[in-house]
Simulated assay, not measured.
Amino acid sequence: MTSYIQPYLFFGGRCEEALEFYKSAIGAEVQMFLRYSDSPDPMPPDALPEGYESKVMHASFKVGGSVLLASDGCGGEESKGFRGFSLSLALPSAAETDRVFAALAEGGAVNMPLGKTFWSSRFGMLQDKFGMGWMITIDPSVDSISA
């Protein structure tokens, strides 16, 4: 077995909403979904804020060939956004790149509009409505600039 890194994203109480959004925006496929109330072991007393029993304890979702992990966390505070990294997503066509960029930008903020750069015919950066940073590009293997 080889070592690997998987992003584990914490959505501060909005994980289920985020998963539904990513399913429609980028075709994410949820592979596992476990609520705190589904845990085979009881949570320690005072480990969760009141009402968190129905929140997401653990989920995994697949985007293309990558698997990401997600949770609501157990702090009960709203997510303050994700800092210090972005998820980079390469898509198989110009049309799909345009569609996904527009879908992820809905309710978020565009940091760099999707456009031509010296390394790609389509590249853009944004922060989605959950505060997740994204770098969206056309797959270099099908891009006329990088091919």
Rank of each mutant, 00 (worst) to 15 (best):
G13Q: 04
M57I: 03
L126A: 04
P7M: 11
A28D: 01
M125E: 12
M112S: 10
Q127I: 14
G12L: 08
I145M: 03
Y4L: 11
D38Q: 06
G27F: 06
D38V: 02
S93M: 03
W119M: 00
L114T: 05
L69W: 06
D41Y: 12
F33W: 08
R14H: 11
A102V: 00
W134Y: 06
S37E: 02
T97H: 07
K23A: 04
Q127R: 15
G107E: 08
R122C: 06
D139R: 07
S66R: 13
D46F: 06
L9W: 06
A28R: 04
V56D: 00
M1A: 14
Q31W: 04
G64F: 11
G65L: 09
L9I: 08
V63F: 09
F21G: 00
Y22H: 06
E17V: 10
T117V: 01
V56W: 00
R35N: 00
M43A: 07
L87E: 06
N111T: 14
G81T: 13
G65I: 10
A105W: 05
V30Y: 01
D72R: 09
M1N: 11
K129I: 00
G84F: 09
S3V: 14
G12D: 12
M32N: 12
P140R: 08
V67N: 09
A25V: 00
E20M: 10
A28V: 08
Y36A: 01
G64Q: 12
S71P: 10
G131R: 13
D128L: 06
E17I: 11
K55A: 10
Y52C: 01
M32W: 03
Q127T: 15
G107F: 09
Y52A: 10
F85I: 12
M112D: 04
L114D: 01
A90C: 12
E77R: 15
A59F: 00
M1V: 11
R35Y: 02
C15K: 07
L87N: 05
P49R: 06
E53L: 05
S60I: 02
V30M: 02
I136W: 03
N111Y: 11
F61G: 05
L104M: 08
A105E: 04
Q127E: 14
G108Q: 08
A94V: 13
T2C: 10
A28P: 05
A105S: 13
L48G: 03
G51H: 02
F11K: 09
F82S: 08
F61N: 04
E16L: 04
Q127C: 12
K129W: 05
L34I: 13
P113L: 05
L104F: 03
K62L: 07
G75V: 08
E29G: 00
S144R: 13
A94L: 10
R122K: 11
M43I: 02
P45Y: 02
S88N: 15
G27N: 00
V63P: 04
A59R: 00
A25D: 01
T117F: 03
F11V: 08
R83H: 15
S79R: 12
A94H: 12
V67F: 05
G64Y: 12
K23R: 14
I145D: 01
Q6P: 03
S120F: 01
A109P: 02
V110S: 11
Y8V: 02
D128V: 04
V63H: 10
T97N: 03
S37W: 01
G115W: 06
K55N: 07
S37N: 07
L68K: 11
S141Q: 12
E106M: 03
S144I: 10
S3H: 14
